[in-house]
């Protein structure tokens, strides 16, 4: 009985993680430009993979009584580095001149940069 409960918990973590990962890919295919795609991948994939790793950790802890500290390290590492890589790609895309999608409403960064250029040229 308790075995089935454990399997249910681990399975829930893993299935939700897999579905989140799939949803991230749907977002990456459907969204109109780099920045919005970056949203989908850097968030949903992170949480999805984190949940799968937590499920794996629980599985090895509950069934094989083997607490794998390297998995904890991997979870911490992925949680720490995912926003950094998302921000880096976003900045690189903006600075290398990738256009925002046509439905974009405001771009205050471009406005402020133009203002800075005018101030410098004066």
């Amino acid at each position: 009985m308790i075995e089935i409960t454990y399997e249910f918990i681990v399975g829930l973590f893993i299935v939700v993680g897999g579905l989140l990962t799939l949803a991230a890919t749907v977002g990456a295919i459907r969204f109109p430009d780099v920045y919005t795609r970056n949203h989908a991948i850097s968030k949903s994939t992170t949480l999805g993979v984190t949940m799968i790793l937590v499920g794996t950790l629980l599985y090895f802890f509950l069934f094989e009584e083997h607490f794998n500290s390297r998995l904890v390290l991997a979870i911490m590492f992925i949680l720490m580095t995912a926003p950094i890589s998302g921000h880096l790609i976003g900045r690189a895309a903006y600075n290398s001149g990738v256009k925002l999608a046509e439905r974009t409403v405001t771009d205050e960064l471009e406005r402020d940069r133009k203002k800075g250029k005018q101030a410098n040229s004066l």
Binding site: A28, V34, N38, I41
Partner: peptide, 12 residues
């Protein structure tokens, strides 16, 4: 961006 996602999915 897509390659980054591929790497993380490989972990899963």
């Amino acid at each position: 961006v897509a390659l980054d996602g591929l790497g993380i999915n490989l972990v899963a």
